[in-house]
């Protein structure tokens, strides 16, 4: 390798390192989770909740109620894994249809999806870690 290309490589590496440090591990993780979550969302959730999280009439609630989502993270992890058939209020409207379970999703998958919805449609909840999901699921008393 010539001296010249070594210098170029070195400079590039330095730039990457600086970028990495600036963004921080957390931001990078968040971006990875978000991207993986986006794919899972399209496969599992978008049919009901819509590509912009807009929901569908009073059948399926929107995911843009930032207060609901921020205040119910444990519950939402349980809803995604085990489904839900309650009466809930989202953006001032009542919903009582059934959300199906996704028992085959791992805690990691659910963390991906929650990081995606938690940072889309107006929500800004940052990186939602796999351990947080594991803890939420342990507390929802629905294992079978």
């Amino acid at each position: 390798m010539s001296n010249r290309s070594l210098t170029v490589l070195g400079t590039l590496l330095a730039i990457v390192a600086v970028l990495y440090a600036c963004q921080g591990e957390e931001a990078i993780r968040k971006a990875q989770y978000y991207t993986n979550g986006q794919k899972l969302y399209a496969q599992r959730c978008q049919n009901c909740h819509g590509s912009n999280g807009e929901g569908l009439g009073q059948l399926y609630p929107p995911l843009s109620d930032t207060i609901y989502l921020a205040g119910n993270l444990n519950k939402v992890a349980c809803m995604i894994k085990f489904g839900s058939n309650e009466t809930i209020e989202v953006l001032g409207k009542i919903y009582d249809s059934e959300m199906p379970p996704n028992k085959d999703l791992t805690d990691q998958d659910i963390a991906y999806i929650m990081t995606y919805i938690g940072n889309s449609f107006g929500n800004e909840l940052g990186w939602i870690k796999t351990e947080e999901v594991t803890n939420s699921l342990a507390a929802c008393n629905k294992g079978d």
């Binding site: 049919n47 009901c48 819509g50 569908l56 009439g57 059948l59 399926y60 059934e98 199906p100």
Partner: peptide, 15 residues
């Protein structure tokens, strides 16, 4: 009405 897969998309499109 309880179809969890394609029907919500169909209903959204018929709307």
């Amino acid at each position: 009405t309880t179809c969890p897969s394609i029907c919500p998309i169909m209903s959204r499109n018929l709307l």
